[in-house]
């Protein structure tokens, strides 16, 4: 059985550490906020300009001046702060944010990531994706193992335009997890229940070592 979106988020949540400042991307990464372990202090950053991003507001709390990086209405937790975009990206680009959990279209053996454009399709722009990938101390990717057409997304080399090169340190897919070690490549560290090594090999283009925990 492949992992569900919620289970993928739970796997990714194991990367959290007490005291971490964390940026969560759109999609499955956003779900990680539901699995912060009890008693662990993790501060969520939204790159539009806040630390301490809280849950969606109630009708009474709703405030159009308070949105996250996906432009969704949110709340601020008691320890939170607001700041401008230059300050926000100084945190990100200056390596002050500990962890980014991002979605991706492709990841390569060398830790390259492509998640902002598909040639021939409408280009929306990279937003903060390149800043996050280049600046945050540890970048992990949470994505489906294969594309809707069944193409492998964990590649020897990315086929799509890069968001950043050599930046990804860990990958969680719906069937397995890889550690990405600089200079060594990918190491398979976990598989979902009933997923076999042969299946992972068949659905992965990249080469990888196997060190299951």
């Amino acid at each position: 059985m492949a992992w569900t979106r919620e289970e993928m988020a739970q796997q990714a949540a194991k990367q959290l550490q007490d005291g971490f400042y964390v940026n969560l991307g759109i999609g499955i990464p956003t779900l990680v906020s539901n699995y912060i372990p009890e008693g662990m202090h993790v501060v969520l950053e939204s790159e539009n300009g806040m630390l301490g991003t809280g849950p969606f507001p109630t009708e009474e709390e709703l405030d159009g001046d308070l949105v996250n990086a996906s432009k969704q209405t949110v709340t601020l937790l008691p320890y939170g702060s607001y700041f401008d975009s230059a300050e926000s990206f100084a945190m990100i680009r200056g390596g002050h944010v500990d962890l980014a959990i991002l979605g991706a279209m492709e990841v390569s053996e060398a830790g390259d990531i492509a998640n902002w454009m598909v040639p021939g399709k409408i280009v929306k722009g990279m937003g903060g994706a390149m800043d996050l990938v280049s600046g945050v101390r540890r970048v992990i990717v949470c994505m489906e193992h294969n594309s809707k057409d069944g193409e492998p997304k964990v590649r020897k080399q990315c086929t799509l335009p890069l968001t950043g090169s050599g930046m990804v340190r860990h990958v969680v897919t719906d069937i397995c997890e890889f550690e990405c070690v600089r200079g060594e490549g990918l190491i398979l560290t976990a598989m979902a229940h009933d997923i076999t090594l042969d299946e992972v090999r068949a659905r992965t283009e990249a080469d990888f070592k196997v060190v299951l925990g």
Binding site: S85, A86, R93, G128, S134, G164
Partner: peptide, 30 residues
């Protein structure tokens, strides 16, 4: 298209009399 932090920093720099700056963001990309 600019990385968001690059765009914001370009505005800040322009206004601060800084003609240009070097950043890691966008290296090895278009």
């Amino acid at each position: 298209f600019n990385p968001q932090g690059t765009l914001v920093e370009r505005m800040r720099a322009g206004g601060a009399g800084i003609a240009g700056f070097y950043t890691r963001v966008g290296v090895d990309t278009v």
